[in-house]
């Protein structure tokens, strides 16, 4: 399709999975071509093509608030909201901003640049929504690198305490500009490898309830057994302990998987975290092969070889 005709993401609601896949391929090709001239955050954006399409299909921006942490992965969002024709000026003087910018579009509800701000901003928006007795979803999209930022952890602590309705999308590409560091990174690694979860927990709860616990010491032991079984079965227990309902891990390049889990999340009360696994640079071999994230923010490059111009 003519991508410059995309003015409002509402049209996505009419598309089926096959049509979305075609559109995703076209968007990828557009970004690879355009950024080979202007440079830009290629890897991060190629990683979130399906995710951004799925979010814009399932939520109603700008009523629902999509908040892109860091913001350099908002190119697809910018394309879907009527800015495709401005990509020749990306990151240039007076040109299209490389980050969300309120004065560019009503769909840019929060400006970013530095990492780890999205959860706090989302919490403010959720509180405002509830005070005004409005109904909408607040959807911060945060990477695994940004989640290690101190403010994001402060926000997790508060969100879990207040139990507001919030739909956190954890965009886990196992990569940050300078390599991810820390225990949280390792914990995410374990969740990733734990395999499909798909609300096993509910079934598990039923199962666990069948374990007889009459009282006294035996009951306590049974509770402990239940708890340790939960830890064993539920990959996102870390987030569950923080007060979130965890969904995932989800294949961030599979529309069916994404849509199913976003739909679950929308029906769930309280804070939700969808753990989405994506691959930075997806669909462009030189960027996919990039283990050191040299394709994070790139200057102009030769499309065939990936060599720099």
């Amino acid at each position: 399709m003519d991508l410059t005709k995309m003015k409002n993401p509402k049209f996505l609601k009419e598309l089926n999975t096959e049509e979305l896949e075609i559109l995703a391929a076209e968007i990828r090709q557009f970004l690879i071509n355009k950024l080979s001239v202007t440079g830009g955050h290629l890897g991060a954006n190629l990683g979130v093509v399906e995710l951004t399409l799925a979010l814009h299909k399932q939520f109603n921006s700008p009523k629902d608030k999509l908040i892109f942490d860091v913001g350099h992965q908002s190119y697809i969002h910018k394309m879907l909201t009527g800015r495709t024709d401005q990509f020749d000026t990306l990151r240039q003087f007076k040109g299209l901003c490389g980050f969300p910018k309120m004065n560019e579009s009503e769909h840019d509800v929060w400006e970013t640049g530095h990492s780890s701000t999205s959860l706090s901003a989302a919490m403010g928006m959720a509180i405002a929504r509830d005070m005004k007795k409005e109904k909408n979803f607040v959807v911060p999209i945060i990477g695994d690198g940004a989640l290690t930022g101190g403010m994001a952890l402060e926000a997790l602590n508060h969100i879990g305490h207040e139990k507001k309705n919030l739909t956190v999308i954890l965009n886990d590409n196992e990569m940050s500009i300078a390599g991810n560091v820390g225990a949280l990174h390792n914990a995410l690694g374990r969740m990733r490898s734990a395999g499909k979860y798909n609300r096993v927990k509910d079934e598990l709860e039923v199962l666990l309830k069948r374990i007889p616990a009459v009282g006294g010491k035996i009951a306590q032991t049974a509770e402990r057994v239940k708890d340790s079984m939960k830890y064993f079965m539920v990959p996102g227990m870390l987030f569950e302990e923080f007060g979130f309902t965890y969904f995932g891990p989800v294949d961030g390049h599979d529309f069916r998987d994404l849509e199913k889990h976003i739909a679950y999340a929308k029906k769930t009360e309280g804070p939700v975290l969808i753990h989405v696994i994506t691959q930075k640079g997806k669909g462009y071999k030189p960027a996919e092969m990039d283990e050191k994230d040299k394709w994070h923010g790139v200057g102009p490059y030769k499309i065939d070889s990936g060599g720099r111009k």
Partner: peptide, 13 residues
């Protein structure tokens, strides 16, 4: 940090 940015989030609404 969270308090300050959360206030900013409230103000956007």
């Amino acid at each position: 940090q969270h308090a300050t940015t959360m206030s900013a989030g409230l103000a956007t609404q």
